[in-house]
Computed example of a mutant assay.
Amino acid sequence: MCALIHDRSIEEAVSPPPPAALQARAPRTNLFLSASIEADDASAPVRIRNLSETGAMIEGPAFPAIGSTLKLHRMEVDVDARLVWQAGPRAGIHFAGTITVAEWVSGKRAASGPLFGQTRVDAIQATIRTGTAPLVAPHPEPVPGAVAAIPDLERHLAEEIALVRRSLEDMGDVMTDDPIVVQRHHKLLQTFDLSCQVLDHIARILTAEDRGKAVAAVGMDELRARLTRG
């Protein structure tokens, strides 16, 4: 197994995708999932850009040589694979066996209850890109007349705000990949980015031990002024 090659600095290591005859593959789902690859005791972070039961296209700073075997990791799941092509920062890999796409979206071997944190973010990102039903458990129906305190409500609210921010940032990344959208709507995209920053500050303030200090540390002058107004 070969050591990882930094593709951006070694142009000759970049190879085009394989001929059409070698590209027959199962239907793939476009995604943007955090993962890592391991080859010959070296590892590197990657993003899974599309995924099927038998292979994936990944994006990252370094890859092993074409034809090398590697292991793709994501949270609780992993799979052995072979690198079959590379073009710039992207590469195609073929799995040694078949995988379940839903498990890789969630990062868990088997679904068990609602999704939280990065798992839920990734599931929502997949939903945005594919238009499929979200992998999020529905909220239970409230019991009539039941009133109960919700522990750590503010922390949960902060987590939800952070989730929305990260999902919006992901949508923004998709939009800024389109030069026409950037040209036509660059001012709106700037407002979009500022809104994400506001959500980030609010989430941090809600979870801070000293909220006064957290507000004072806000780098956005207008937001800090609004939060401290009488």
Rank of each mutant, 00 (worst) to 15 (best):
residue 128 I to C: 11
residue 129 R to T: 04
residue 74 R to G: 06
residue 90 R to V: 12
residue 208 A to G: 14
residue 50 N to I: 08
residue 56 A to E: 03
residue 2 C to Y: 10
residue 33 L to G: 07
residue 85 W to N: 13
residue 80 D to G: 06
residue 113 G to D: 01
residue 85 W to A: 12
residue 79 V to Q: 13
residue 177 D to E: 15
residue 37 I to G: 08
residue 182 V to P: 10
residue 148 A to S: 08
residue 219 G to T: 10
residue 198 V to E: 09
residue 37 I to A: 04
residue 224 R to V: 04
residue 225 A to W: 05
residue 47 R to I: 08
residue 37 I to E: 03
residue 3 A to W: 00
residue 204 R to C: 06
residue 179 P to L: 05
residue 66 I to R: 08
residue 220 M to G: 07
residue 76 E to G: 02
residue 22 L to H: 05
residue 110 A to T: 14
residue 55 G to C: 07
residue 49 R to W: 03
residue 72 L to Y: 02
residue 209 E to F: 11
residue 49 R to Q: 08
residue 110 A to H: 13
residue 21 A to V: 08
residue 128 I to F: 07
residue 54 T to K: 11
residue 19 P to C: 03
residue 182 V to Q: 03
residue 188 L to N: 13
residue 30 N to W: 07
residue 179 P to Q: 06
residue 87 A to D: 13
residue 65 A to F: 03
residue 209 E to M: 12
residue 22 L to F: 03
residue 211 R to P: 01
residue 190 Q to G: 10
residue 36 S to C: 04
residue 192 F to H: 07
residue 71 K to W: 00
residue 184 R to T: 11
residue 31 L to P: 15
residue 179 P to A: 07
residue 142 P to I: 02
residue 227 L to C: 05
residue 14 V to N: 14
residue 230 G to L: 04
residue 106 S to Q: 06
residue 165 R to F: 07
residue 41 D to Y: 02
residue 70 L to D: 01
residue 187 K to W: 08
residue 174 V to I: 15
residue 81 A to L: 05
residue 26 A to G: 09
residue 110 A to V: 14
residue 95 F to T: 08
residue 187 K to L: 12
residue 75 M to I: 08
residue 147 V to H: 07
residue 98 T to S: 15
residue 14 V to I: 10
residue 180 I to Y: 13
residue 14 V to R: 12
residue 118 Q to V: 15
residue 227 L to V: 07
residue 143 V to T: 13
residue 93 I to L: 10
residue 56 A to P: 08
residue 87 A to N: 13
residue 151 P to R: 00
residue 97 G to K: 13
residue 67 G to S: 05
residue 26 A to W: 06
residue 156 H to A: 13
residue 162 A to L: 12
residue 25 R to T: 10
residue 88 G to Q: 12
residue 153 L to V: 10
residue 216 A to F: 04
residue 77 V to M: 02
residue 157 L to P: 05
residue 179 P to C: 11
residue 177 D to Y: 11
residue 106 S to F: 00
residue 141 E to S: 11
residue 101 V to G: 05
residue 162 A to C: 06
residue 196 C to E: 09
residue 73 H to G: 03
residue 33 L to C: 10
residue 189 L to N: 02
residue 71 K to C: 00
residue 106 S to G: 08
residue 115 L to E: 01
residue 53 E to Q: 11
residue 133 A to D: 01
residue 97 G to N: 14
residue 154 E to N: 12
residue 99 I to A: 09
residue 80 D to L: 06
residue 131 G to D: 02
residue 15 S to L: 11
residue 78 D to Y: 00
residue 173 D to L: 15
residue 43 S to L: 00
residue 82 R to N: 02
